[in-house]
Design a protein around this nucleic acid. Structure first.
Length: 877
RNA sequence: GGGAGCUUAGCUCAGCUGGUUCAGAGCAUCUGCCUUACAAGCAGAGGGUCACUGGUUCGAACCCAGUAGCUCCCA
């Protein structure tokens, strides 16, 4: 059977993914082993796989596969998030295409459509993750709006309400007057817009004077509650304590002072309209101002405006400018640029609007969540996020949990005819509650109760995720929750450190008395190579599945991990995936070499030194890789693996032991090499699951039974490291490089056999390594000499001298120059070392081992210098 | 406006508690090779005033202060 020279992944990927599934390798049930658990950050049901998911889930899969191979009971729970706002928008848009308006549907009818949509599109991402190789326990797939999880949301709402931690209150929201709904900050697109700044005179009460305010929104003057100046503004000291009339409506409002006012913006006088501006609202709260809301929910003016009633806000703006002009109070109009928010969904200008919302108190729950991170019970990786986290948690604001939507868990509050409300799980329970509230309610029936229309924020269900996926609410003492909770690692994006991570920690303490996870690995943002965020509108995001098609799943996994240190954004480029694919190809070709060997039992093993060296080198690298993993430096763990495989195993070890073309290999070397290769496959598996599994099952490894798979192979553990052999082979590699370098610079073909003379000065015994040098340097004979060899190309390794006689090719002038350059360098080096050793304060302050080291450096440099000097003398002579 | 962080080779990044020839890795570049595992490759080479300016220290990429530029988060 001939094996392709290049890796053909498509078939292997489908084959092995199915094989793993059929054999249940992703499944996890509680047992006596140590658990290792990850819950997926549930992707939105509206989403399709993007590069951020690729990064995030590759990391999770690497972690989970590694844990599985370490013998832990690895459980990766997948699922999706119902994403209220995004999904509802999608469904509304789809219905619109079908000529159906949401207004014409009942809540239940709409939800039916939404569920149909969810069933059809909601699982796309999870299916796509399978192409990446994600080894989730698919039997555990959850959805944030399925019955059990929704029950948990309702129950926890009631729990918190009874604790007094949920309340209703007024809040400024981003109102979309066209969609007639509040939208979240994330759905507001800020754009710079050309506007006009109107300067309007407000007459001062009881005086002939007036003050001039500057505003971009003259149509809101009727809602003004005060005029503010900065208390330090000397221009207006005389106005403190006075009041003014609002033009056109002649309502009297006070002049107040606050340092919030910027003196050099506009006139330094600020009209404050608490109902229609967030900053004004806060200022109003601070100073106890009246709130006058003059807008209807469609953006038109209401009766409270007194004038221009019924006009749209923008029409009103134009008209009031004329009215002000006519009244002679419009001082001037300037052009002005400022940021205006637009609704992502309707492109309407967002109106800051006060509305009654539900809130969850955060102060009590924030305490243990902050403590966990500060005392290290929950580790944020990288650590730099601890500061950000602390800052947020120390200034935490109450959480607005209501949304004016239908797709989500409906708030379990029922309003009574008298305007009061009760919170209960069902209408029946609500009725009971109501009756107990007051004897007046005795005659009420369920029909008299009206359930709150709003649903809870999606985060109010996802904050329960690590508990609810293990049925921790339905069955608080169940085997699953007791075994898997707290989970081990969470891999997510820093953008949602507060929205999600912090709240999960709060929920963990509140509902389980325990943190939800130990480590939080925060990934960076995937950007294009120009550093721009990947986005649909820029079209700069590659299609992940196309990438997999082109570079293989293994290649893409390697590519995306290579340059993604924790918390750093990664500048993604296809070339990383190409590097990954090339690496897979390298592994395949190493395999092809092994596969082609014939074993001759009668041959004696001449490669023991190489075998000993690679065994040590493997363990050394393994140790480094484990250290990288323990610090979650995945890209470095991968790079260390990459170099071990490519450089040490392929470029050095295989070349050392490789028999001549079509010659057989001895069985001891063969066996050792097969074992090494098997270990290499294991080490690679978490990064490149498909090719490793494919090769794992080849007959060169002997018979394997059905469940003997790389995915569940035992990860190698660090064994003996022989430092001496590592150091000596390092020297040998330098000798071989020296020979190759001479070939290259003298343009000597690698095929031409060269002679090597060695003048040994160091303690290294090269005898055992000479066959290696002969083979990899293509050397005929090596002789030991006691004198320098003249007319030969030379180089030095440690303090040993090597000569390759090339009489006709040697240029004594160039050689002299080379040696002088090196001598110059060494002299400089020696000077700096001597400066240290000659410095009394250095000798006093530096640690003894550092001084010793400097002394050794001096001795080495002096020895080398002497040798170079001798060579120079020889050349001159 | 408040907070956090970044600046090291052409690019992406390591560089731990200041002390090896500490200035590194991968990719890219250049040179020479189709040497039967691999041209998706092999061998070799070049490349940096560690943003700038001061300070602390026997010694600074690393500590401190300032300057410039960039990024993110909160309002």
């Amino acid at each position: 059977m001939s094996i392709s020279k290049t890796y053909q992944p498509q078939e292997a990927e489908a084959k092995w993914y199915n094989y793993w599934l059929t054999n249940g390798f992703f499944k996890s049930l509680p047992d006596e082993r140590e658990p290792y658990t990850i819950v997926i950050p549930p992707p939105n049901v509206t989403g399709v796989l993007h590069m951020g998911h690729m990064l995030n889930n590759t990391i999770q899969d690497v972690l989970i596969r590694r844990a599985r191979m370490q013998g832990k009971n690895a459980c990766w729970v997948p699922g999706t998030d119902h994403a209220s706002i995004a999904t509802e928008a999608k469904v509304v848009a789809l219905l619109k295409e079908q000529g159906i308006s949401k207004k014409d549907l009942t809540r239940d009818e709409f939800l039916k459509h939404a569920w149909v949509w969810k069933e059809k599109y909601g699982g796309i991402i999870l299916e796509q993750l399978k192409k990446l190789g994600a080894s989730c326990d698919w039997d555990r797939t959850r959805f944030t709006m399925e019955d059990d999880l929704s029950d948990a949301v309702i129950d926890t709402f009631i729990h918190l309400y009874k604790k007094g931690w949920i309340y209703r209150g007024v809040r400024m929201v981003n109102w979309d007057p066209q969609g007639k709904t509040a939208v979240s900050d994330e759905e507001v697109i800020r754009k710079e817009v050309n506007q006009k700044l109107y300067y309007i005179n407000y007459p001062v009460v009881g005086e002939e004077a007036h003050v001039t305010i500057a505003t971009t929104r003259p149509e809101t003057i009727m809602a003004d509650a005060a005029v503010f100046v900065n208390p330090n503004d000397e221009r207006y000291l005389h106005l403190h304590g006075k009041s003014v009339y609002i033009p056109l409506v002649n309502r009297e409002i006070p002049i107040k002072t606050d340092e919030y006012v910027t003196m050099d913006f506009g006139t330094g006088c600020l009209k404050v309209t608490p109902a229609h501006d967030l900053n004004d609202y806060e200022l109003g709260q601070k100073h106890g101002l009246q709130v006058i809301d003059i807008l209807n929910d469609d953006g038109s003016l209401n009766d409270l405006a007194q004038i221009l009633v019924g006009e749209d806000r923008f029409a009103a703006r134009k008209k009031i400018a004329v009215l002000l002009q006519e009244a002679g109070v419009l001082e001037k109009v300037e052009e002005y640029k400022s940021q205006v928010g637009f609704s992502e969904r309707t492109d309407a200008v967002i109106e800051p609007r006060l509305s009654m919302q539900w809130f969850c108190k955060m102060d009590q729950m924030a305490k243990p969540a902050l403590a966990d991170v500060l005392n290290g019970d929950v580790k944020l990786i990288p650590e730099k996020f601890v500061n950000t986290y602390r800052h947020w948690m120390e200034n935490v604001q109450d959480w607005c949990i209501s949304r004016q939507l239908w797709w989500g868990q409906r708030i379990p509050a029922w309003y009574l005819p008298n305007g009061k409300f009760v919170v209960a799980k069902t209408a029946e329970e609500a009725l009971e509650e109501a009756k107990q509230l007051s004897p007046d309610n005795a005659q009420l029936t369920i029909a008299d109760l009206r359930q709150e229309e709003d649903v809870v924020d999606t985060w109010f269900s996802s904050w329960l995720w690590p508990i609810s996926v293990f049925n921790g609410f339905k069955n608080p003492d169940g085997a699953d929750i007791n075994y898997y909770y707290p989970t081990n690692d969470l891999v997510t994006a820093p953008e949602i450190l507060f929205f999600w991570v912090a709240r999960m920690i709060m929920a963990g303490h509140e509902f389980r008395g325990q943190k939800p996870f130990t480590n939080v690995y925060l990934t960076g943002i995937v950007r294009d190579k120009l550093g721009r965020k990947m986005s649909k509108s820029l079209g700069n995001s590659p299609d992940p599945l196309a990438l997999i098609e082109k570079f293989s799943a293994d290649g893409v996994r390697v590519g995306i991990l290579l340059s993604s240190p924790a918390g750093n954004d990664l500048m993604f480029d296809d070339s990383y995936c190409e590097q990954g694919r090339n690496f897979a190809n390298k592994v395949l070709n190493a395999f092809r070499l092994l596969k082609g060997w014939e074993v001759d039992e009668s041959l004696e093993n001449t490669n023991q030194v190489a075998i000993d060296w690679f065994a040590s080198r493997f363990n050394e690298a393994l140790k480094e890789i484990e250290e990288n993993f323990s610090q979650y430096r995945l890209s470095e763990a991968l790079m260390a693996t990459y170099k071990l495989v490519w450089d040490d195993f392929c470029a050095w070890y295989l070349e050392m032991i490789k028999p001549a073309y079509q010659q057989p290999i001895d069985s001891a070397t063969y066996k050792a090499t097969i074992t090494f290769f098997e270990d290499v496959l294991k080490l690679l598996h978490p990064f490149m699951p498909f090719i490793t599994e494919e090769l794992w099952h080849d007959e060169i490894f002997g018979m394997r039974n059905e469940r003997d798979c790389c995915i569940v192979a035992k990860m190698p553990v660090v064994g003996q490291i022989n430092p001496q052999v590592l150091i000596e082979v390092e020297a040998v590699k330098q000798i071989i490089s020296g020979i190759r370098n001479i070939r290259n610079s003298k343009q000597i073909s690698p095929k031409e056999v060269l002679q090597l003379s060695l003048k040994a000065n160091s303690a290294v015994n090269y005898t055992a390594y000479l066959p290696m040098v002969i083979k990899l340097g293509n050397i005929g004979t090596i002789d030991f000499v006691n004198e320098q060899v003249s007319g030969a190309a030379s180089f030095m390794v440690l303090t040993d001298e090597f000569y390759i006689p090339l009489a006709e090719n040697i240029d004594p002038v160039a050689e002299t120059e080379r040696l002088q350059k090196e001598m110059e360098y060494l002299n400089g080096f020696l000077k700096s070392v001597n400066a240290k050793l000659g410095n009394e304060r250095f000798m006093q302050n530096a640690k003894p081992d550092i001084i010793e080291n400097e002394q050794k450096k001096r001795a080495d440099a002096e020895a080398k210098l002497k040798l170079i000097q001798d060579s120079l003398t020889a050349l001159a002579g």
